[in-house]
């Protein structure tokens, strides 16, 4: 039986004094992309923040590759995250950004460079390694952010509206490239988006969240 990349059971999410959603059961298999759609305030981003560990779970369990990580620190969960904005580290080159996670894992510099070059190639940025991140366009920066998140081979990648700041044509092209790369890497992905078309184009399954606070 295939072990899910990420699995939540009866997960309750929210903040101290504010419950956002409860009883969330979600399974993402290797190479599977699950899109989450829903109105603002329904808890999509809070769910991602809880799975990654930025916001503590109020109840339930989170498993990554079969390992319970509900109380495990962020850096030990094996969960990657890409935001709406690329958030590239401004003092590092493109290559050093992509190598950041690999270096934290103790990967040798040579191996990290090879992996970085490979990912940049897949994401249509060959030869961009030595560039400053300030030289990149919005779409290029988001590709680098994706390469950086994928480089340490996370079990699951959380995409928090990563294409919403891009124009329609670029968004569609990048979404397809990203989907192909995720499947090639065998990474599970949860993709939060407001765009139903983007969800349908990219995802294997679409999950809808409703506003928990409304009757």
């Amino acid at each position: 039986m295939t072990v899910p990349r990420v699995e939540t059971q009866a997960l309750t999410i929210g903040y101290p004094g504010r419950l956002v959603a409860a009883g969330i059961d979600l399974v993402v298999l290797p190479g599977e992309i699950v899109a989450i759609v829903g109105p603002s305030g329904s808890g999509k981003s809070t769910l991602l923040s809880t799975i990654v560990g930025v916001v503590p779970a109020l109840g339930g369990t989170i498993r990554v590759d079969g390992r319970a990580v509900t109380t495990v620190p962020i850096h030990e969960r094996g969960v990657g995250l890409v935001f709406q904005e690329p958030l590239l580290f401004p003092h590092l080159s493109v290559q050093d950004n992509v190598m950041y996670g690999l270096r934290r894992q103790g990967t040798t510099k040579e191996e990290a460079r090879r992996r970085s070059a490979e990912l940049l190639e897949w994401l249509d940025l060959p030869g961009y390694g030595d560039r400053s991140v300030d030289e990149l366009s919005g779409g290029q920066a988001q590709r680098v952010a994706l390469a950086r998140a994928l480089a340490p081979r996370p079990a699951v990648l959380l995409l928090d509206e990563p294409f919403s700041a891009l124009d329609t044509e670029l968004r569609q092209r990048l979404a397809l490239d990203v989907a192909a790369t995720l499947r090639r890497e065998g990474v599970g992905a949860i993709h939060v988006t407001h765009d139903p078309k983007e969800a349908a184009d990219m995802a294997d399954r679409v999950v809808a969240m409703t506003d928990f606070s409304r009757p």
Partner: peptide, 16 residues
């Protein structure tokens, strides 16, 4: 979120 991204990439709080 810069620090959060660094932490998802394996950095401890201090390393981030």
């Amino acid at each position: 979120n810069f620090e959060n991204v660094a932490r998802t990439l394996g950095a401890t709080r201090w390393a981030a």
